[in-house]
């Protein structure tokens, strides 16, 4: 099972490291990372394997939301199926 972690906000030093650290703490394996600047906003998208995470999915979502608030970014964790079903036939 994989989830998409999206991080949106103003670019600053160490965003990737902080999010990756939080993933590692929950034993979520990062499969892929891509980042870009869209309409002046820094956007990072991470695909993580959540099959063996050490916490409940809800707890992971909460951790990431709180991390986002603490570093001034908006972070969402969503199951990858929502994107697959919306954008792929």
């Amino acid at each position: 099972m994989r989830a998409v972690i999206s991080v949106v906000g103003r670019d600053s030093v160490g965003i990737l490291a902080k999010v990756a650290n939080a993933c590692s703490a929950c034993n979520a394996n990062i499969v892929d990372v891509t980042q870009s600047v869209l309409q002046d906003m820094f956007v990072m998208v991470m695909l993580v394997d959540i099959s063996d995470i050490s916490v409940e999915f809800n707890a992971l979502t909460k951790t990431m939301t709180e991390l986002g608030e603490s570093i001034g970014m908006v972070i969402h964790v969503m199951h990858e199926d929502i994107f697959n079903s919306m954008h792929r036939i």
Binding site: S6, V8, D32, S36, E80, I82, N84, H87
Partner: peptide
């Protein structure tokens, strides 16, 4: 990997 634009589109639809 999913397209970053598609991902942001979905998130914008839900959030905004």
């Amino acid at each position: 990997m999913l397209n970053i634009h598609d991902i942001m589109e979905t998130i914008t639809m839900i959030q905004e």
